[in-house]
Every structure is written in C-alpha cells, then in structure tokens.
Design a protein around this nucleic acid. Structure first.
Length: 294
DNA sequence: GCCTTATGCTCAC
DNA sequence: TGAGCCTAAGGCT
C-alpha cells in the first residue's frame, strides 16, 4: 500500500540486489506467465516514476509493476521460501550457484533451481523478493513505458521542477485536495501525503487549484521532497515534527506519525480542534478546519 | 472466524 | 459516481 516514496525505496533496494546481474524470475502457480521472457536475463536497472516500477531487462522487456492498493513486496536472503498464498512473481539472484547446464535443463542460464533437489545452491548468496497483490505486473515494450511516462506529471522524488505542477494546478477549478491525488499533475503523491502536505502548508483542501497562490504551491513541492525522501520510518510514513508530537521526542508513536491522516474525531496536535473527514476524489480526506481555513 | 478497511487505479454508466 | 479488482492486516466477535 505504497505512495511514491516507498516505490522509490523498492527501486533502490532491488537495484542494489539485482541490477547488473542475471536474475531468475518465476511466476508460481501460473500467475505471471511472461516470467519466461525475463528469466535468466540481466537486469539493467530499476526505474521508479510516481507509483510505477520498471525493471529494465533490455529493450522491449521492461517489467512494469504497480502495487495498487493491496500490492506488496517481501524480501529476504538465503533459501527461497516455499510458495505461500497468492504469490504473483518472485525474483532471485542465484548467480553464486552457477553451474554448467545439465541435460534436459534450460541452456539459456543454467542456474541451480531452488527445487531441483541437488542441494548445490549457495543459500547465503541468494537474495530474493516476492510480489503479491499488484495491480499490474506485465512486460512492457519501450513504447509502452514511454507512453506511461507521458501521462504522468512531474515526480518530486525524481528531482522534477515544480513548474509543470504549478501550471497544471492553476488551470483547474477542481479543489487542490483532488488535484494532489491526480498522477498527471504530481506523480507519486497519495492519500497520506495529500492530507499531510496540505496540513503542513496550512492550506484548505477545498480551495480551487486556480486560486492557490503560486508561492504556496512551490512551498508544497519543496516540502514534499524531503518529506517523501525521509518520510519512511520502519516502512511507515512520518510527517509530524518532533515539537508537535504530544509525547515529545524519541521514538515516533504510531498515533503521532501524522497530523490529520486518520485522525478524524481526535484533537489537532497544533490547535486542539477536532480533525474532520470527508470523501474527496473517492478517497478519505482528513483536515483540520481551524489550521486549514477555507 | 468474519468483517472492515487500506498509502490505488480502471472501467462502465 | 460507483463497482470492481484482489490481498493482507487489524478489529471485532
């Protein structure tokens, strides 16, 4: 259940584990039949744009992964765990166990398989990831990947400038709370960052895009980069400043990680007003009516 | 155990 | 605007 920050984090981790090496790719239970197109090939790099991942196995072989609401990775090292639950895809690096292809075995690579029963694999040298529940897991052509990039707006985590974001917001009559969720306007921002960025800017979610001051939009963009980059603590987004957390410094309590996200009915950390909740753009929007006046 | 919910997005109406 | 996707976790019984 990721926003852009976690997608970029996965891209970095997976690149560190697999890029530049031949990678085993498997779709257990027939859930990813295109794995054969990738299995044993060298992973050139891992790309992250907005909430999309692209595993570049060479031209016209880009594995596109979008986690959607439910998708998630698990990672580890050592022997591959047994297939459990609805596993869509797994990748692992068994380069350390390379051997000459035996008769009847694929000649393209010739890695020991985790289940070939030979026991010759070097478990301590195997890194693996499992993917389950993604919204998309398909092999893209270069053209498809570029088409995807075209419809995405600028991504703060890729160092994109805010100009396009500002221009698009200023063209719209829709409320800023809806625009921040639009991936064509800003790629990578999701429901937590929408709520928290607006709170930190003390901006009402209901103000029309065209009416938001340019400097406010630029400030939001500037705030988003470090917040999304450093916003993960134990795979959790943290947006509160230490001075605003009721319990003070030290470990960030679960209930103090956000200002308004899922805080409806509870007092705002800053002013004590009850945090509100309302559906906007099909998702739950949270805000403080006092800190973020219309 | 069952029910609800979730950091997302697409499609049909 | 609403249903559907499809999985896991957490709260409830």
């Amino acid at each position: 259940m990721p926003e852009g920050n976690e997608i970029h984090r996965w891209a970095e981790r997976h690149a560190a584990a697999f890029a530049g090496k031949a990678v085993r790719v498997d779709g257990p239970q027939g859930r990813f039949t295109d794995s054969e197109m990738l299995d044993g090939r060298k992973l050139v790099r891992v790309m992250a744009v907005g909430k999309h991942l692209g595993y570049d196995f060479g031209k016209d072989r880009i594995l596109h992964v979008h986690l959607g609401l439910q998708g998630d990775f698990t990672e580890g090292s050592g022997p591959l765990p047994a297939v459990k639950g609805a596993l869509r895809l797994r990748m692992w690096n068994a380069a350390a166990a390379k051997k000459p292809a035996a008769p009847g075995e694929s000649k393209r690579h010739g890695w020991y398989s985790e289940d070939d029963g030979t026991g010759h694999i070097a478990p301590e040298l195997v890194a693996w990831v499992e993917l389950r529940g993604p919204m998309d897991c398909t092999v893209y052509t270069q053209e498809q990947w570029e088409k995807l990039l075209k419809r995405l707006g600028p991504d703060p985590l890729n160092g994109d400038a805010p100009d396009e974001f500002v221009a698009k917001v200023h063209k719209s009559k829709k409320p800023i709370g809806a625009l921040l969720m639009d991936q064509a306007i800003a790629a990578g921002i999701g429901n937590i960052y929408r709520a928290e960025l607006l709170f930190r800017a003390r901006l009402s979610p209901f103000i029309a895009g065209k009416d938001v001051a340019e400097e406010t939009l630029r400030a939001i963009w500037k705030d988003a980069l470090p917040l999304m980059k450093a916003g993960m603590v134990d795979r959790r987004i943290v947006t509160t400043l230490p001075k605003d957390r009721p319990s003070g410094k030290g470990k960030v309590l679960k209930e103090e990680a956000h200002y308004v996200y899922r805080h409806h009915g509870k007092p705002c950390f800053v002013c004590g007003t009850k945090v509100m909740k309302k559906d906007m753009a099909g998702r739950n929007l949270y805000w403080c009516p006092t800190c973020q006046p219309e």
